[in-house]
Nucleic acid binder design. Structure first.
Length: 321
DNA sequence: GAAGCGTGGCG
DNA sequence: TCGCCAAGCTT
């Protein structure tokens, strides 16, 4: 209520500086809105926009088409975007609601892969439900606006609810995200042009909020990837653990195989460890594979980034014999 | 509450 | 080369 002047300033700023051309805005179809929210979790707008959003919608025009497809096809469309639990949950969600998303945040939050923030985002953007979101951008603004160094999640949700303009939930939430993304940035926020500055308690020292988190040491693993050849086919395993689960890839082991040809070395930084893989060409029907494929068949399978890198080494090896 | 979970871009 | 960060959810 007493935030009315700030809301007015926010909307005025949003009208001029908001990212109004994003394709998942200006629609009330919950599916593309939901899809964008899932793709954008921990992922930058440019990545989603330039490489994944439109191809995915072309392959799966409706949530019903997702529900009717095999999980592997959804993972293939997700390949390269990372955090593949999102794709598995997207498929599970589509099946759980049979291709029709429910009409409220409370119901959306019951579906797999939809937490409180995503549920509220879809409800606010598709149904104009008066709920506030708390994504990374809004969270940073809330920390600074209320000068909270290390609040509990409960406090953050209370504060984001308190700041909501319930009369305009769509514009309010979009404006807050844009403000966090372009003005109230992690480093060097531009308080001088911020429409919320007059009410912000953290503006004298914005980078003190939130409190910087302690960094942990990132482990580094060195392993061997087996490129197994047998009767003209390549042996791959179907990963079943949480890391890259549902994707196909080369069998890995901690020690070098007895006889092998080194194809090359690939490095990759995952979210919580680093990996160096030495790709070893080995002959014969070794254990550990779930399937044998030609190069053409592999092209249709979902693979992780580092497995694609190794696959490129294999192609190069046999093109230059 | 903390850890696990991908990838790409940037300084 | 490296650390940080980007529309979080699950366990």
């Amino acid at each position: 209520m007493h935030y009315q002047p700030l809301h007015d300033a926010l909307f005025s700023w949003y009208q001029t500086h908001g990212r109004h051309d994003l394709p998942w805005r200006n629609t009330r179809d919950p599916y593309p809105i939901y899809l964008s929210e899932i793709m954008l979790q921990q992922t930058q707008v440019a990545t989603v926009l330039e490489r994944f959003y439109f191809p995915f919608l072309e392959r799966f025009p409706t949530l019903k088409s997702v529900a009717e497809a095999p999980e592997e096809a959804v993972l293939k469309a997700w390949q390269g975007l990372g955090y593949y639990t999102r794709a598995r949950n997207l498929h599970a969600c589509a099946k759980a609601c049979d291709g029709t998303l429910p009409g409220s945040a409370a119901e959306l939050e019951q579906l797999p892969g939809i937490g409180k923030s995503t549920a509220r985002a879809v409800a606010a953007f598709a149904y104009h439900e008066p709920v506030a979101i708390l994504d990374a951008n809004v969270k940073r603004i809330i920390h600074r606006f209320f000068a909270l160094a290390s609040p509990t999640p409960k406090t953050l949700w209370e504060k984001t609810d308190a700041l909501l303009d319930a009369a305009r939930p769509y514009d309010y939430n979009q404006a807050m995200m844009d403000l966090g993304a372009t003005v109230c940035t992690p480093k060097a926020p531009e308080c001088a042009v911020c429409p919320l500055a007059s009410g912000c308690r953290g503006k004298t020292d914005p980078t003190a909020y939130p409190e910087p988190k302690k960094k942990k040491a990132v482990p580094h693993h060195a392993r061997y990837a087996l490129v197994q050849l047998h009767k003209g086919k390549i042996g791959l395993m179907l990963r079943k653990e949480k890391l890259l689960g549902g994707l196909w890839g080369f069998v890995q082991q901690d020690t070098a195989p007895e006889v092998h040809e080194l194809l090359g070395t690939a490095r990759h930084a995952y979210s919580h460890f680093k990996l160096t893989l030495s790709a070893c060409l080995v002959e014969g029907d070794l254990p550990g594979c779930d399937g044998w494929f030609s190069l053409e068949e592999i092209a249709a399978l979902p693979l992780s980034k580092i497995d694609e890198t190794i696959l490129a080494m294999v192609k190069h090896r046999f093109e230059t014999v």
